[in-house]
């Protein structure tokens, strides 16, 4: 058995691949649901109706997609330079932490912008550690970014069980509620908040950055061939650090938006794996920045639908992970068969 490159690649199959993969994953997860005693058709019906059947559902779709758009970017931008940022989860927690600190201690009309800026800085700082270790010592960024997630999560846990635990929270691991000046304004009587718009704005800015600037050009070169980039005088180490800083900053903003737009307080489990979801989101979008909106919305739907399943059948939200991984595996598998054929 041998594997050969196909001479002609079917464009139609290539472009329909993501949709076929999504379909295949739905079927696969359906079988699993049936296995644990849930009628999959009923379950998918509930997911659809709870998401698209009401104003609330639709608004939730955008609310859940917002952090996903941001973590998708946080993974995708370093990925353009050939780096794996598996640490968006931790960067998100660090952003949430500093934003809460500002909200609870420095209430003022300027609280929101200060929270944004500091959240970006703290997210970036958290990403700076693995970035500089990669640039200076070639330390594997996959492992280091991931390990730092646990540190950040335990840090926030420590705060809400200890120094930042609120006075009126009945022993729950929460901080006090933020003053109003530190919460993002909401619209239409839903949880839709200003952060949604800001997320879209960030996508647009990033799109322009990578389409138009010489910085974007050099990132693409480093991602395509780091050694050729070096020969061409592009400072690969700088690019490593910059893309990770941008990714970390965006993930930090995601953390700020989650607590200032949704929870209005610091608590332990802010994110049901948004940072990790950024990886399949970015892979699904194939590094195309605008396409991140689409793939994040798909995953947003899964989270909204997933929590509907959680309340109806008490299925853990972890089922979303299964779907995420399957979509990507089907895509890379499918792409293989589009590009190669097996010859006997």
């Amino acid at each position: 058995m041998r594997i050969e490159r196909r001479e002609e690649i079917s464009k139609i199959v290539l472009y329909s691949l993501p949709f076929l993969s999504i379909l295949a994953s739905l079927i696969f997860v359906g079988i699993l649901l049936w296995f644990v005693g849930v009628n999959p058709i009923e379950a998918y019906y509930i997911m659809l109706i709870r998401t698209f059947g009401s104003k609330l559902g639709l608004s939730e779709l955008f609310v859940k997609s917002t952090p996903l758009i941001l973590t998708g970017l946080a993974v995708a931008i370093p990925m353009r330079a050939g780096l794996w940022n598996i640490g968006a989860e931790g960067q998100l927690y660090m952003g949430a932490f500093i934003a809460s600190f500002v909200a609870l201690n420095f209430a003022s009309p300027f609280a929101i912008p200060i929270m944004f800026v500091l959240a970006a800085i703290f997210g970036a700082a958290w990403a700076f550690i693995p970035a500089i270790l990669k640039a200076k010592f070639e330390l594997n960024e996959i492992i280091s970014t991931l390990l730092l997630n646990y540190v950040a999560i335990y840090w926030v846990e420590y705060l809400v069980y200890g120094p930042m635990r609120g006075k009126n929270v009945y022993n729950f691991p929460y901080s006090d509620l933020f003053p109003e000046c530190a919460t993002l304004p909401r619209f239409f009587d839903t949880r839709l908040h200003l952060g949604v718009i800001i997320a879209f704005l960030i996508v647009f800015i990033m799109y322009l950055t990578f389409r138009k600037t010489s910085f974007g050009f050099s990132v693409n070169v480093v991602g395509a061939n780091p050694r050729a980039a070096e020969y061409a005088g592009i400072d690969r180490k700088k690019i490593i650090v910059y893309t990770m800083l941008i990714g970390g900053a965006i993930a930090g903003i995601a953390g700020m938006e989650e607590i200032s737009g949704i929870h209005h307080r610091l608590r332990a489990a802010i994110s049901p794996g948004y940072g990790y979801a950024g990886i399949p989101i970015s892979l699904l979008a194939k590094g195309n920045i605008l396409a991140i909106i689409l793939s994040a919305m798909l995953f947003g739907f899964l989270y909204v639908g997933g929590s509907a399943l959680q309340t109806t059948y008490s299925i853990p939200i972890a089922v979303v992970y299964i779907f995420q991984s399957l979509v990507v595996l089907f895509i890379i598998g499918g792409e293989f068969f589009v590009r190669y054929r097996v010859v006997r």
Partner: peptide, 30 residues
């Protein structure tokens, strides 16, 4: 299957196994 037979990117399929394992164990182990 992905990394040896299909010879695709080992990083991607490895990372996806993490998500798959966490998801499956969460669902079945509930």
């Amino acid at each position: 299957f992905f990394s040896i037979t299909l010879k695709v990117d080992q990083t991607v399929s490895g990372l996806m196994l993490v998500l798959l394992g966490l998801g499956l164990s969460g669902l079945i182990g509930k």
